[in-house]
Design a protein around this nucleic acid. Structure first.
Lengths: 244, 244
DNA sequence: CGGGGGTTTGAGTCCGTTCAAAATACGTGG
DNA sequence: CCACGTATTTTGAACGGACTCAAACCCCCG
């Protein structure tokens, strides 16, 4: 399915299935056609970098299919996975808006198709349609808020609860509901990366996962995860007994 | 000193000593006079709230003197101190730009003077001078970057090192250099709040502080802190021996 | 069949937390 | 100016979570 939409979106941004859910939805038909003509679509293999920290920002990217990850590292080389990008998400807009070098790196998590929009093309559209700038302002404000929430969670929750929260967020994005009300999904990340998202070692995450299985909160096998009572996920924090 | 500048800034934004360092620097003389006429300046006592989470955003604020804190709390009531604001900083612009309710709360840390700019006044200035919007875009992007850095540090550093980093940042902002090259300053925060900034309990911070004193990195007494070798602060992470 | 990456498990240690109590600083009213 | 009550900070002991290091395990791929 992800395959087919990737191909159909390759034809034109007008018929892109994510158009109405992305920042580009404020563009009219002519502007969208302009975008479509000037964008470049390309496949990425799993793990392939999209851009790297410190590079100049030549343009922005738009996910068509697959998933990508935002990573950032500090001076000592410690890195953290900050965010996961799904089809319809734009990335790298910050560097372009501010004419800055990239402050984080992005890479494809699985086989993905990503469109590239050149800086001049983006600038032209921003000039033609002021609502587009407003969209990106809204977007950056939302990102900001997410980052702050993340910060508050990190300060107050233990690793187990941070992971439960992450699971909840991932489920909302990519999960499927089964007939019995339970939810399951294919995790887009390795255990190592899951651990990096909550700021823990992979060994610790491994133990947390065992614990969640013992408690009956979820079942893991490979990258597949089943959650028995997805609605009570957030209530299960610090209180596994609530599972009934 | 902070007192006098507060009073002089009370007269007009034109003569505000922070003007050239704030987002308002792109305004011309007439626009600044307009801002000056329509802003309201007011004193806050220590601990007094400036605005609270969930309130509608009626306008934005500009610190004249003193310091303020941004706090955010999650659903369970856990809070974290996200940021400290110094004279010249604007706050609360996000809610105004996006017509949203406040997503965090702000409060004065010590006796402070803060100007309030009504939403319509701000919108008028944004219309008149597009460079102002660009300034705030830059500002939000910088904030975003800081939040991400914070996230990476939280994921990889132990509490001691997080605190050393915080100390470094605070010093750069409000520290004074003594004749022997050491630096000292008056901390704007209580121990509890310092602990909240690095996501630790106040007891833990207390122990960290004792340790730093034993190691000879810094000396604390009340809210005053002396750092012996400020330049090597960041090198001291995990390696107190480097102090020589 | 033998790597090699990713993942799990185990043991030991350290760091940070919790809870409780003492010590210190601070503001207020006498 | 001092005494008092309150809030903040420090200290202590015990516990638990998370980390390190090391080894075993698994699964996919050549």
């Amino acid at each position: 399915m992800a395959r087919r939409c990737g191909e159909s979106s390759g034809v034109s941004c007008l018929s892109c299935q994510w158009r109405q859910h992305s920042e580009w939805r404020v563009l009219n038909e002519e502007e969208t056609r302009f975008l479509s003509r000037n964008r470049k679509s390309r496949e990425y293999r799993a793990g392939e970098p999209i851009f790297a920290m410190g590079e100049p920002s030549h343009g922005l990217y738009c996910m068509i299919s697959g998933t990508a990850a935002i990573r950032k590292s500090d001076a000592e080389g410690n890195t953290a996975l900050l965010r996961i990008l799904y089809p319809g998400d734009t990335l790298g807009y910050r560097g372009v808006l501010l004419e800055e070098k990239r402050r984080y790196s992005a890479e494809a998590l699985g086989p993905s198709r990503v469109c590239f929009i050149d800086k001049p093309v983006f600038k032209t559209l921003l000039d033609r349609n002021p609502a587009l700038g407003q969209q990106f302002l809204r977007r950056i404000a939302k990102d900001m808020d997410e980052a702050h929430d993340h910060l508050v969670r990190n300060a107050n929750l233990c690793n187990r609860d941070k992971f439960v929260h992450l699971l909840h967020a991932l489920m909302n994005r990519g999960g499927c509901t089964a007939t019995d009300g339970s939810r399951f999904m294919e995790l887009p990340l390795s255990r190592r990366d899951l651990a990096s998202m909550i700021g823990a070692r992979h060994e610790t995450l491994s133990r947390i996962i065992s614990r969640l299985e013992e408690e009956g909160v979820a079942r893991f096998s490979g990258r597949t995860v089943h959650v028995r009572k997805p609605h009570s996920l957030l209530q299960v924090m610090q209180h596994p007994a609530l599972l009934d």
